[in-house]
C-alpha cells in the first residue's frame, strides 16, 4: 500500500463491484418500470409490416426491404429508448432524492455515473439483442418460404448473411452506448428531464447528419465555416460510420477489420464522454 496519512486508516478504493451494484439497480428499475413493454410495440410493428410487404409480393428483393426496414426501425426506436431511458433513469435519482442517500455513502461519483451508464447500456443491449433476433427470425422464415416458391433465384443457397446481421446489431448497440453517454453528459449539468431529452435528440441529429455538412461545406465554403464544420466533426461522433453496408446483410460481407475499428471508435467516445460526464457531475450540487 502507498503511504497512508495518519487520520485515514481505511481509504476507499475505486470499486468495480459497487459500480456493478448501481448498474444492476438501474437495470432493475428499467425492468420494473416496464420500459421493456415498449419492445412489444416494436415487435408488433415489425411483424405487421413484414406481413404488409408480403401482400405486395416483391419476390427476392423483399428480403432486402425487410432487412432495411427492420434496421431502420431498430435505429429509430433504439435511439428514442436510449435517450428517454437515460434521462429518466438519471432524473428519477435526482427527483426522488435517492441520489442524496446513495452519494452520502462511501461511493465515488465516478462509480455512480458509470454505474448508471452500464445499467442503461444493458437495457439497450437487451433491446438490440431481442430486435436483432426477431429480425433474423422474420428473415429466415421469409427466405425459406421464398426458396420453396422460387428455387431458381436461390441456386447459390441462402442470400442473407445472418452473421453480418448480428454484427450490425452489435454496432447499433455500441452506437446507442455513445448516445447514452452523450445523454448522461447533458443530464449531468441540466436541471430537467425534458431539457435533457430535447438536447439529446438535437445532438443525435447532429451526429447523424454532420457528414452531410462536411460533404457539402468541406470544399466550397468560406474558411470560418469550413473550420466550424471540421470542429463539429471532431467534437461530435459521426454516427454514419456505424452503417457499414448499404444493403444490410445482403451482398458483400462485413470486413472484420473495419468492424473492430468502428467498435473501437465507439468505445473511445464512450470513455471520453463518460469521463466528461463524471467531471461535470462532480461539480453538481445535489
Amino acid at each position: 500500500m502507498s503511504s497512508a496519512t495518519a487520520s485515514t486508516a481505511r481509504t476507499v478504493p475505486f470499486s468495480p463491484g459497487r459500480l456493478g451494484i448501481v448498474a444492476g439497480n438501474t437495470f432493475l428499475e428499467a425492468v420494473r418500470q416496464k420500459l421493456f413493454n415498449f419492445l412489444l410495440l416494436l415487435a408488433v410493428a415489425l411483424v405487421a409490416s413484414a406481413q404488409l410487404f408480403r401482400e405486395f409480393n416483391f419476390g427476392s428483393s423483399e428480403l432486402k426491404f425487410i432487412s432495411d426496414f427492420g434496421f431502420g426501425a431498430m435505429v429509430f426506436f433504439g435511439s428514442t429508448l436510449t435517450i428517454a431511458a437515460t434521462a429518466q433513469l438519471f432524473f428519477s435519482e435526482i427527483e426522488n432524492r435517492t441520489a442524496l442517500t446513495i452519494l452520502a455513502k462511501p461511493i465515488w461519483r465516478t462509480e455512480f455515473i458509470f454505474g448508471k451508464f452500464l445499467g442503461v447500456f444493458a437495457v439497450v443491449g437487451v433491446f438490440c439483442a431481442l430486435t436483432t433476433l426477431l429480425l433474423l427470425a422474420l428473415l429466415y422464415h421469409r427466405e425459406t418460404a421464398l426458396m420453396t416458391a422460387n428455387p431458381d433465384a436461390f441456386e447459390n443457397g441462402r442470400m442473407i448473411h445472418y452473421g453480418d446481421l448480428v454484427l450490425m446489431g452489435v454496432l447499433q448497440w455500441l452506437k446507442f452506448g455513445v448516445l447514452a453517454a452523450i445523454t448522461l453528459l447533458i443530464a449531468s449539468f441540466s436541471n430537467t428531464n425534458l431539457y435533457t431529452v430535447v438536447m439529446g435528440f438535437f445532438v443525435l441529429v447532429i451526429c447523424h447528419l454532420q457528414y452531410l455538412a462536411r460533404d457539402a461545406y468541406g470544399a466550397v465554403a468560406s474558411l470560418p465555416l469550413r473550420l466550424l464544420v471540421q470542429l463539429l466533426g471532431y467534437v461530435f461522433p459521426n454516427f454514419q460510420v456505424f452503417n457499414l453496408a448499404d444493403q444490410i446483410g445482403i451482398g458483400e460481407g462485413i470486413d472484420s477489420g473495419i468492424f473492430l475499428r468502428v467498435a473501437g471508435y465507439a468505445l473511445i467516445y464512450i470513455a471520453v464522454i463518460g469521463g466528461l460526464a463524471v467531471y461535470s457531475f462532480r461539480n453538481r450540487e445535489i
Binding site: N25, L28, E29, R32, Q33, N96, R97, T98
Partner: peptide, 8 residues
C-alpha cells in the same frame, strides 16, 4: 422527507 426506490 425521504423517498426511496419505489420499485424495491
Amino acid at each position: 422527507a425521504p423517498y426511496f426506490y419505489r420499485y424495491l
